[in-house]
């Protein structure tokens, strides 16, 4: 699971959960997969992302020094930041770990890079 995907996942489908976002990410094993850097794509991706959760992801992989806590007004001219975001969001691949619902503590395991977000019938 790439950290860009982490930004899209929620536990809102659990009965009684109001927001279910962001999930608490714990990483047991990760990989870094080099991918081609496309600054324009990162720029187009950013409006889709929740910046607070981008920053959370950075903290989880000890890259919080690379990423500002508040979203900068403009990133287009900041090639260095775009490169860092590319690495954080598209190159780090979580293989083993877990996601946790912020409201209920329900744990979603990540196995072989696949988060299991499936809920039991009595949870929805």
């Amino acid at each position: 699971m790439k950290l860009s995907t982490y930004n899209f996942l929620t536990s809102k489908a659990i009965k009684g959960v109001k927001v279910g976002y962001p999930l608490k990410l714990t990483i047991a094993k990760k990989d870094v997969v080099e991918t081609e850097f496309n600054p324009t794509f990162i720029e187009r991706l950013l409006p889709k992302l929740d910046w607070n959760t981008v920053y959370l992801a950075a903290q989880t992989v000890d890259l919080a020094d690379d990423i500002p806590q508040e979203q900068p007004a403009a990133v287009a001219d900041n090639e260095e930041l775009l490169q860092r975001l590319h690495h954080l969001l598209l190159e780090i691949d979580v293989l083993e770990g877990q996601l946790e619902c912020p409201e209920t503590g329900r744990v979603f395991p990540i196995t072989d890079g696949i988060p299991n977000m499936l809920l039991n019938e009595d949870e929805v």
Partner: peptide, 9 residues
């Protein structure tokens, strides 16, 4: 992602 329809997104 393992999940039901788009519930997890």
């Amino acid at each position: 992602v393992r999940g039901s329809l788009t519930d997890a997104f």
